[in-house]
């Protein structure tokens, strides 16, 4: 496969991952009393499937689409104002998390333990950005911000990490058939 075709494939895959991240803001699967929104699972998968650079590109395009006003953020909203709103920190955290997850995962060359480690690190990056910004914007104490913006979602995050492993295992061969993220360091 020539370089331009590979580049085009990576671009289209990153676009589709960005669209899936947007779709993830709309879809919830009820597991237990709290429905699980799939958005941050899809952010983690962008890093795992596309690697650091293209994972970051994918989330960057998602954020850009939201910035120009497309309804891609949670609750069907969009606009640049969302970035300075209370959930703006999570949005920026998504970009950092996708990059870090991708970089760690690339070094693990498909190892399950490394992938799990990468997702745990990525999850805490999202909360670091999200809770810090939530605290600044709403003026809550750090304990209240953590109680509102992190603790209720941790169980769901554990389930998402557990689910991501078999999903990524079954999807990697499809992607690797076209572009080898781990070998090319894309």
């Amino acid at each position: 496969m020539d370089t331009s075709t590979k580049q085009l494939k990576l671009m289209v895959y990153a676009t589709m991952m960005a669209t899936l991240t947007a779709v993830g803001a709309y879809i919830a699967i009820p597991i237990g009393p709290v429905p699980i929104v799939l958005q941050n699972l899809f952010v983690m998968m962008a890093g795992l499937l596309l690697g650091g650079r293209w994972g970051l590109t994918s989330v960057g395009v998602y954020l850009l689409a939201g910035a120009i006003g497309l309804p891609v953020f949670a609750g069907g909203t969009g606009g640049i104002g969302k970035f300075v709103g209370p959930t703006g920190g999570y949005l920026l955290g998504f970009a950092a998390a996708a990059y870090v997850i991708g970089m760690i995962s690339q070094r693990g060359k498909g190892s399950v333990a490394v992938d799990v480690f990468a997702m745990i690190v990525g999850t805490f990056i999202i909360y670091f950005f999200g809770v810090s910004w939530l605290k600044i914007v709403t003026g809550m104490s750090i304990s209240k911000a953590v109680a509102v913006g992190m603790l209720p979602f941790l169980i769901g995050d554990v389930l998402k990490i557990a689910a991501a492993i078999p999903i990524v295992k079954s999807l990697r061969p499809i992607i690797a058939g076209n572009i080898d993220v781990h070998r090319t360091g894309a």
Binding site: K9, V12, Y13, T15, M16, T19, L20, I29, I31, I36, L38, L41, M45, L159, K160, A163, P166, I167, S170, L171, I174, I175, N178
Partner: peptide
């Protein structure tokens, strides 16, 4: 539920991407 739904959705989307 989570695994089956996500895997199927991603497979179809990547097929469309190709």
């Amino acid at each position: 539920r989570l695994i089956k739904f996500t895997t199927t959705l991603f497979r179809r989307v990547f097929l469309r991407a190709d």
